[in-house]
Simulated assay, not measured.
Amino acid sequence: MLRTTQRRITLLRSHLYTNHRSYSTTQHSKMTAVTPTATFTLNNGHTIPAVGLGTWQSKPGEVGEAVLAAIDAGYTHIDGAYVYGNEKEIGEALKKAFTSGKIKRENLFYTSKLWNTFHQPSKVSEAITKTLSDLQLDYLDLYLIHWPVSFQPGSDLFPKDKDGKVITDPTDIVDTWKELEKLVDAGKVRSIGVSNADVATLKKVIDNARIKPVINQVELHPYLPQPALLEYAKKENVLLTAYSPLGSGKDHSPLKEQVIVDIAKKHGKDPGQILLSWAVQRGTVVIPKSVKAERIASNRKIEKLSEEEIAQINGIKERVRIVDPKEFWGLDLFKGDTADK
């Protein structure tokens, strides 16, 4: 099953990569100064480090060392997911970090995500048990519904019919959410949230929640700033976490925008640090991914930008959604709105 899962994830990767005003630098959740140790306070009182290490696409044999390098560099926030297929290795790395005294469990913020094949209420407990076992943790700091779509349960994480179309399941996200609330009650997770939710989906969860989501993790960068979603989330005091905060890293990337390059030179920073600083300053958590120790350390070095610099970055007009399920699943989860007018 592991080989099949990794093959599916490799396929997915190839498809993906061949409460204020939307652009305000004021944060809706209380945030400390824009520094490498910046934190946000969630709507339930827990805090989350503003910069975390993303582990998507981090290969077995690399991800454990990346996690240890991140902790050595001062990170206290690691973002993972069951579907990434690397949480066992992350668990071993965390065990080393705890036993060596590099970090205490209570000082680490770990996020994982419920995969689409576990949305049926009877499957949620199975999923969290597996994740906690792989990570060798007693609880998660944050557990997210990875995508607002349910897949047919089973060992195949990307089930498809004979025509190659993904097989969905009719489970409603509200029913899944109620099971996540029970995990909070049981002490298995401290905070819960969603991922890849548009305004309509986020509103649906909030309107039916006993425990309000604290986070919505979505694609965010200057090519996809999602102002309408950010404005709604701020109004509801739900924090956004930005995945792919540096864009695709390909030739056509925010990293190569002249305005970003110029601001980076002015600050003595690299373009990636400017993009991450911009994201945190507009009130979002960032989870840049890398397996290189030098880059991991570099990504954490954010600093405050001027209002003029923020406005210049906000002025970038290009609009690109990198992670679009229309392309790899044939599902239009964002209703065709890639520009987010």
Rank of each mutant, 00 (worst) to 15 (best):
V280W: 06
G101K: 01
D207C: 00
L2Y: 11
I316C: 06
S150P: 02
I310M: 15
R13M: 11
N299T: 06
A38C: 13
L68I: 13
T35K: 11
G80P: 00
K304R: 02
K182Y: 05
A73S: 15
I173D: 10
S248W: 09
V174I: 15
L229S: 04
L305D: 06
T168F: 07
K212C: 06
D198I: 05
K256H: 14
T18D: 12
I128C: 03
Q27D: 02
D324A: 09
V214Q: 07
H146W: 03
D175S: 13
P159V: 12
Y139N: 03
K95N: 11
A197V: 05
F158H: 05
D270E: 06
I263H: 11
Y84P: 04
R7M: 08
H46M: 13
D340H: 14
D172E: 14
D270V: 14
L144S: 04
N43W: 12
H77D: 09
K317F: 01
L94G: 09
Y143F: 13
I9D: 02
T99L: 12
S14T: 10
K301A: 10
L2W: 11
T241F: 08
N299D: 14
L137Y: 03
S24R: 01
I71C: 01
I90W: 09
K326M: 15
T26D: 09
P288V: 01
I145Q: 03
A186I: 02
E307Y: 05
L144W: 00
S253C: 12
S277D: 03
G101F: 01
Y143S: 04
G64T: 03
K104I: 03
A200T: 10
V280R: 02
D332K: 09
V124M: 01
A209V: 10
K292Q: 12
G80M: 03
A339L: 04
W56V: 04
G272R: 10
P271L: 12
K292P: 00
D172V: 13
P148E: 09
F40N: 06
D207I: 02
K203W: 00
W177Q: 06
K234N: 15
L276W: 01
V67A: 03
E87L: 00
H28S: 15
D72M: 07
E294Q: 13
G91A: 07
R13K: 14
P254G: 03
A50R: 08
G193V: 08
I274G: 02
L11A: 11
